[in-house]
Design a protein around this nucleic acid. Structure first.
Lengths: 161, 161
DNA sequence: AAGCTATTGAGAATAGGTCTCAAGTGCAAG
DNA sequence: CTTGCACTTGAGACCTATTCTCAATAGCTT
């Protein structure tokens, strides 16, 4: 993913803040820079840690205050991967319809897009009388195929060999 | 949904317990009877309340201990609807591939199934080297269409009329 | 009926996330 | 370049859903 796309997302968020008459403080800047310089899913705690590398003064409270702004802007999405804490996905600005497939064994997550599925979702939503705002599709499975090919580098995928 | 299907799911869960050499206590019985006599999504707290109608001795701890068994059996699925507590869906025994569409405004939830989407999920999973175990698709939207037709009975759908 | 062992209820404990409040700081107007 | 004020902040208290502990209880096999 080109850096410019992430820069673009960052700018969109700044605009979002401006529109809400919210200030761009140094702490928010550090958090924003962090979020829009990664493609990884992250937890609130990780975001705190990473942001502190840029600005030591970032507090847990500010991270938890900024996260709802990020999700409200639509540029970051809250994800439930069945753990007891939430994950956040910063890739929705560039790929608003992407989906996730997760390996039960090694927790590897692969993102994918499907126009066909998106189209079907639209049709069905309409038929049910809904205007669609967002969708999330999560598939759980095993990366056994990759394992057979020796292409999966994740530990658990090799444990029983 | 015919009562017999729910009875069937109940029996499957009893078998599941037996296979794991777990006992069928009166408290578990009350919880199971409750779960497999509804089609509604419920929270842990609701399950506690409802189960206590059948057996006053059911405790919160036992409900929270039984829930993982239910999900492990595959007959009930944990759902994240963005609230700060989890919901449980007891309809997966009969409809293992059903999906949800949720109205942002009134929280109405409609379930639907789509063979076409399921097929695409299979294809994509395979292509990505995964064997599929489960899937969950959640669409968020507005039930505006229903609102226009006057068919949506949920309060928020009429607030701005 | 006995005994082994899973199971239970009550409440303490945990942990992610939220809230409070006094102190600090963008930033728009002058 | 000041000033002023409303928005923000950090620290830690607080909240609340869920998990854990432990002594008492009760399925189920023999």
């Amino acid at each position: 993913m080109p850096v410019t796309e992430k820069q673009n997302a960052k700018q969109k968020f700044m605009d979002f803040l401006a529109k809400k008459q919210l200030r761009i403080t140094s702490q928010r800047q550090a958090i924003i820079d962090t979020v829009f310089s990664t493609e990884e899913h992250f937890t609130a705690e990780q975001l705190l840690e990473w942001s502190r590398h840029r600005d030591k003064s970032v507090s847990r409270a500010t991270v938890y205050r900024t996260l709802p702004l990020l999700t409200e802007s639509g540029l970051v999405r809250e994800m439930d991967f069945g753990k007891d804490y939430k994950f956040y996905d910063p890739n929705y600005a560039e790929h608003p319809n992407h989906n996730h497939i997760i390996c039960q064994d090694c927790d590897k997550i692969v993102e994918f897009e499907s126009e066909k599925i998106a189209k079907l979702e639209d049709e069905i939503s309409h038929k049910l009388g809904f205007s669609i705002k967002a969708q999330r599709l999560q598939i759980t499975g095993n990366c056994e195929e990759l394992k057979k090919l020796g292409a999966c580098r994740h530990k658990s995928c090799h444990e029983h060999e």
